[in-house]
Amino acid sequence: MSFLLYTVTEVIKGVPKTLAISIVAMVVGLAIGTLFAIIRVKRIPVLSQLIVIYNSFFRSTPLIVQLFLVYYGLPALILTLNSKLHLSINPDLFPPLVIAFIVFSFHAVAYLSEAIKGGLQSVDDAQIEAAQTVGLSKFNIYRRIVLPQAFGYALPNIENQYIMLLKGTSLAFAIQVTEIMAISHVIANEGYRFVAVYSVAAIFYWLLAAIFEFIFNKLEHKTTKHLQPTS
């Protein structure tokens, strides 16, 4: 019992970083992903094609490979720039947690832009035409009519993506971020109680996922009752 209590009190110390990575990635992903989705829907030349390539890369390559590429590649790139341009940038400028923020955000953008694009395409064009006839600007049409409904339609996919991000943070221990999985890994190796320790970690992920599923379900209940059913 004492070992179990020790494990719980230690593993809980990794919860803030686990939440920080997933929440930062979700916020950045929603912001940039919304912009990317609008560009895709508007079919803006060149930019739209570049976004397709971006999304394809980050959706088709393993997250841990992306983490390693940035974790090992960024210092190498800085050293190269220092050599070629006679700079003096510290290659350790980006600590592991910052790299996790960057990679998980890039990863989230690719998935969330597709989810929001689907939401945008679900908004009835007749509403946009009606708003134009009463003189609303394009900015206000998107701000007041299109985006609120698009997020409502996309909310189930956004929820799934956040849960995936939350679980995916367990890979951050591979680049020395001391989140839930990293702390569990250390305790398990020290005490050789692998099943017990990883069971505690699994319960923490389960509880966090359940909490956010509850929050998203409440949001979905509030938003969907104002949406028109899609055909």
Rank of each mutant, 00 (worst) to 15 (best):
F104D: 03
V24I: 14
V195E: 04
I78R: 05
Q176P: 10
I175V: 12
G29Y: 06
F68Q: 02
K138C: 07
I99E: 00
E114N: 06
K117S: 12
T133E: 15
S56N: 13
N82F: 05
A154K: 00
A25Y: 01
H221G: 14
L69A: 15
A110W: 06
S88P: 11
E220N: 11
Q49C: 12
S48E: 09
P95F: 10
A20N: 06
F194T: 09
V8S: 06
I180F: 03
F68T: 05
R143P: 12
V197I: 13
F68W: 11
I53A: 13
L85N: 09
P96S: 06
Y111F: 13
P75V: 01
V41S: 07
Y6L: 14
T80P: 02
I128P: 13
V98Y: 03
P229Q: 10
N160V: 07
K13H: 15
S105Y: 02
S199N: 09
Q49H: 12
L5C: 14
V8G: 09
N90A: 09
V65N: 04
E159V: 10
T230Y: 08
I180E: 05
F104Q: 03
I23A: 08
N55L: 09
Y153K: 07
Q132P: 10
G191H: 15
F151P: 07
H226L: 14
S231K: 15
M164C: 14
I12Y: 14
I78M: 01
N157Y: 12
G29W: 02
V186R: 06
F36Y: 11
A100T: 01
F58T: 05
D125E: 12
E10G: 04
L63S: 02
E159P: 04
L87D: 09
S88N: 14
I51Y: 04
D92N: 12
I64T: 06
R40C: 05
I38S: 03
I211Q: 04
V15P: 04
S88M: 15
D92V: 10
K84M: 15
F106K: 01
L4F: 14
V41H: 09
M164K: 06
H86I: 12
F101C: 07
A25F: 02
A196L: 08
A130I: 13
F212I: 07
V11T: 10
A209I: 06
Q66T: 01
D92Y: 11
V98A: 08
F3D: 12
T61K: 03
L120A: 02
E179M: 11
P62E: 05
H86R: 13
A20M: 05
F101W: 08
E213K: 10
Y71A: 08
F204Q: 03
A131H: 10
L50Y: 10
I12G: 15
V27P: 00
